[in-house]
Amino acid sequence: MDEQSLETIELEMAVLYRRITTATASGKYGNLDRSAYLLLHRIGAHGAVGVKSLAEEYQLDISTVSRQTAALEQKGYVRRIPDPADRRAFFLEITELGAKEYAVYKQGRLTRIRELLADWAEDETETFAALLQKFNHALLSSNS
């Protein structure tokens, strides 16, 4: 592996993380932070889920996910429903308000990304998407 390429990737990832954090913290795209966005995406796309499963999926402590989902519940973005297999436990499902907030936030992010990539060729965006997905999968696999 080329050392210069690795150094460039390392630096550009740090810059990317900082710029995304700054851009999304402005509230310009809606009222969601990164954790809320990801949790609402997961619950909205795949259905009701328990806190333990979310913690495992995102490789976080249960206490962290519990705090994050409690904040979503307090805002009315998710609600608890009984776990049919274990009446002592519960699942979280997205509410209409949560789905709406998620959609607004996602659309804002998509609009901004579309603007940033407007002068890229279609094959470049497809390659970037595939490589970014591959990198994220490698990150997930390395932490399992």
Rank of each mutant, 00 (worst) to 15 (best):
residue 102 Y to L: 13
residue 61 D to H: 13
residue 39 L to G: 02
residue 50 G to P: 06
residue 20 I to N: 02
residue 48 A to M: 01
residue 96 E to L: 09
residue 24 T to P: 04
residue 19 R to G: 04
residue 42 R to I: 01
residue 113 I to R: 00
residue 62 I to E: 04
residue 58 Y to H: 06
residue 85 A to S: 14
residue 38 L to T: 03
residue 45 A to I: 00
residue 122 E to V: 14
residue 94 I to K: 00
residue 7 E to A: 14
residue 98 G to K: 00
residue 59 Q to T: 12
residue 51 V to S: 06
residue 86 D to R: 14
residue 98 G to E: 00
residue 128 F to Y: 12
residue 88 R to W: 08
residue 73 E to R: 09
residue 93 E to F: 02
residue 69 T to F: 03
residue 116 L to M: 09
residue 43 I to C: 07
residue 109 R to P: 01
residue 48 A to R: 05
residue 8 T to Y: 11
residue 98 G to H: 02
residue 62 I to M: 01
residue 96 E to Y: 01
residue 133 Q to M: 11
residue 32 L to G: 01
residue 26 S to C: 10
residue 122 E to I: 13
residue 68 Q to D: 14
residue 56 E to H: 06
residue 38 L to W: 01
residue 54 L to Q: 08
residue 101 E to H: 06
residue 21 T to E: 15
residue 123 D to A: 11
residue 4 Q to L: 15
residue 36 A to Q: 15
residue 116 L to H: 01
residue 55 A to K: 10
residue 75 K to H: 12
residue 68 Q to V: 09
residue 71 A to D: 12
residue 41 H to R: 07
residue 52 K to N: 09
residue 98 G to Q: 01
residue 141 S to L: 15
residue 121 A to E: 15
residue 14 A to L: 14
residue 115 E to L: 13
residue 107 Q to N: 11
residue 142 S to I: 10
residue 22 T to F: 15
residue 129 A to H: 06
residue 125 T to W: 13
residue 28 K to C: 05
residue 80 R to C: 00
residue 80 R to S: 01
residue 128 F to N: 00
residue 40 L to V: 07
residue 111 T to I: 13
residue 66 S to D: 07
residue 107 Q to F: 08
residue 21 T to C: 09
residue 2 D to L: 04
residue 47 G to A: 02
residue 67 R to I: 07
residue 2 D to W: 00
residue 68 Q to R: 13
residue 70 A to F: 08
residue 45 A to W: 00
residue 41 H to C: 05
residue 78 V to W: 01
residue 97 L to T: 08
residue 70 A to D: 06
residue 42 R to G: 02
residue 132 L to G: 15
residue 4 Q to D: 12
residue 117 L to F: 15
residue 55 A to H: 09
residue 93 E to L: 10
residue 7 E to H: 13
residue 32 L to V: 02
residue 52 K to G: 08
residue 130 A to N: 04
residue 96 E to G: 07
residue 121 A to V: 10
residue 53 S to E: 15
residue 77 Y to M: 10
residue 98 G to S: 03
residue 28 K to V: 13
residue 47 G to P: 05
residue 23 A to Q: 12
residue 58 Y to I: 01
residue 57 E to T: 11
residue 21 T to H: 11
residue 88 R to I: 08
residue 97 L to W: 00
residue 35 S to E: 09
residue 92 L to D: 05
residue 140 L to Q: 10
residue 43 I to E: 03
residue 92 L to G: 05
residue 41 H to S: 02
residue 97 L to N: 04
residue 65 V to D: 00
residue 124 E to L: 10
residue 28 K to L: 14
residue 82 P to K: 08
residue 38 L to E: 03
residue 93 E to P: 03
residue 79 R to D: 06
residue 109 R to N: 06
residue 46 H to I: 05
residue 53 S to T: 13
residue 85 A to C: 01
residue 113 I to K: 00
residue 41 H to E: 04
residue 40 L to H: 03
residue 88 R to E: 09
residue 1 M to L: 03
residue 54 L to P: 12
residue 89 A to S: 12
residue 85 A to I: 03
residue 10 E to K: 08
residue 61 D to M: 12
residue 143 N to E: 14
residue 82 P to C: 05
residue 101 E to D: 11
residue 48 A to T: 04
residue 3 E to T: 15
residue 126 E to T: 08
residue 90 F to I: 07
residue 120 W to C: 14
residue 69 T to L: 08
